[in-house]
Structure formats: C-alpha cells, structure tokens
Design a protein around this nucleic acid. Sequence first.
DNA 1: TTATGTGCAAAACATTTGCAGGAGT
DNA 2: ACTCCTGCAAATGTTTTGCACATAA
Lengths: 141, 141
Amino acid sequence: MSLMENTMESLPNMRLTTQRQIILEELGKVTSHPTANEVYDMVRKRLPRIGLGTVYRNLELLADSGVILKLEVGGTQKRFDATVHPHYHIRCASCGKVDDIDIPVQEDINMAASHASQYEVLGHHIEFSGICYTCSERKPD
Amino acid sequence: MSLMENTMESLPNMRLTTQRQIILEELGKVTSHPTANEVYDMVRKRLPRIGLGTVYRNLELLADSGVILKLEVGGTQKRFDATVHPHYHIRCASCGKVDDIDIPVQEDINMAASHASQYEVLGHHIEFSGICYTCSERKPD
DNA sequence: TTATGTGCAAAACATTTGCAGGAGT
DNA sequence: ACTCCTGCAAATGTTTTGCACATAA
C-alpha cells in the first residue's frame, strides 16, 4: 500500500513535492515515534540537501491535515507517528523511547470529563510511563 | 496550613532557602498550572533579584523530591502543580490553559497496559483536550 | 504563470550550566 | 567551616522564520 497516494492526494491545497513524499514514506517505515531530528536523519540519506526547516514545516503541515500524528508526550522533543487511528502510548522513564499501547480506547471518559469541567471536550490521550525491556535488562532492580 | 513546613522539612538534604520557600508558596497560591517563566514572574514580585536559573533548578528539585508535580503536557513549556495527588488535566486547544479534571483515577488500565506491553508499567497520565469556556465565548461556533 | 515549497541561515524560545561569591546548617 | 545554593551570563537544544530561488500545478 502507498501511504502517499492514500493520504496526500486527498489534500487539495498541498503539493506533492519529493520532500513531502519521502518524509511520509520514511515515517511510514518505522514503528518507533521519531523526533523531527530523527526524521531529518532518515530522510537525509535519500535527500542529502533537504533542510531541517523543511522537515519541521512538513511534519507540522501533515499533522495539521491529519495525515500523521504529532505526539506531545513527555520529554523535550515532539514525536511523530504515521499511525493516525486513536491509540495510547508508553514512554520509558529511563531511555525515553515511546511505544504504542494496544488497549481499548476509553470512550466513556470524555463524557465524564465533560461533566467534570466547563470545557467542550474534544478528546484525550493517555501516556503510560514505565521501564522498557531493554532498560530493565541493562540495569536490573 | 503551611506547604513549606509540611513538605520541605521532611527533605533532609535540601536547604530551606528563601528562594525555595517563596517559589513553593507562590505555586501553592494558584490553581493554574504555571510554566517556569510564570512562576519566575510571580516570585520576582517578592524577590526581584532572583534568577530564572534558580527558579528552574528549584522547580526541578522539588519535582524530583515529589513536593510538587512537573506536568509534561502538550505545548512547548513544562508546567508545575502544587497538587501532587493523582489527577488528570485538560488543556484548551485554543489558548493553552491547563485545568484539573476531577474524574476517578482509572486504576485498572495500568494492568491492562502491563499485559499489552513488555514494559514494567509505573503509572499513567491522561490529558484531555478541549475548548475552555472563555475561548468558546470569545469565538462561538 | 503563479502560488506554494525549498534550502539556508539567522532568530526566537525554553532550558541548562559554569562559575565566583553568598547563605544555611 | 563546609557544603549547598544563588545570580548572572553564556551555552545548549529545539523549533520557527525571512528571504531569494526553485518547482508543482
């Protein structure tokens, strides 16, 4: 399947540039949740002259259009995810790695939050924290 | 009740400096979830010569000791909270304001996450997103 | 052809850190 | 006294932006 064709052709006012396509392709290849800089490194192997600004601009644009997901999880950098269907994440407290957590989405809590606040609730995200397998191997209890 | 006495006296290797006390006092006064810079502004009214670095250092230290909470929510800045008991937050997608959401803590999902991953799960945080009352007044649908 | 996108470099933020002097215990 | 802490300023790390040129539609 082609991520680009599925997603970008349905976006009328976004041009299909080489940079855009390759950023999307590379992000689609990994199951990690790379930072902008990591995407930059991945893309640079195929497009050595791409600018970091272009990567930031495109990740932002693609996230705004809903083609990719921008994760505002803990840590200092934003992370990006080619998987857009609702799901949760876990972050390793030791190494900072972020993985998906496949548990059912808690549909009901949005309404609870709505009743408990004066906000028009749009959605929620759950971020678990834990110690990943690699880190617990390296440094046992 | 005095936040300082309750909390800081139980921390053997942390000195009771004026800066530390006032940062803690000012944070305890507000129910918002100020950024480091907002805390700096609050504290500076009482201690005009305090440095921003000192504010960062102390917020970090107090968070590490569990006296306050460091919120790694969406947006570009970290936020701080004098309320340490487990609770969730909602962030206004329009103005960025962060409020508490008082719904029951979902105790069970940690175990679900544990089964769904190879992590040793330590905890979780839920961040709702929505539009606050002020923003929906200002700019109705 | 023309609006949008790009590379590059500088700017803008948020946060951290080195250091010499100051203050808590 | 002896650490730990502070103010200051410089450094670091991340993200954004201005601009002249390039390119998709």
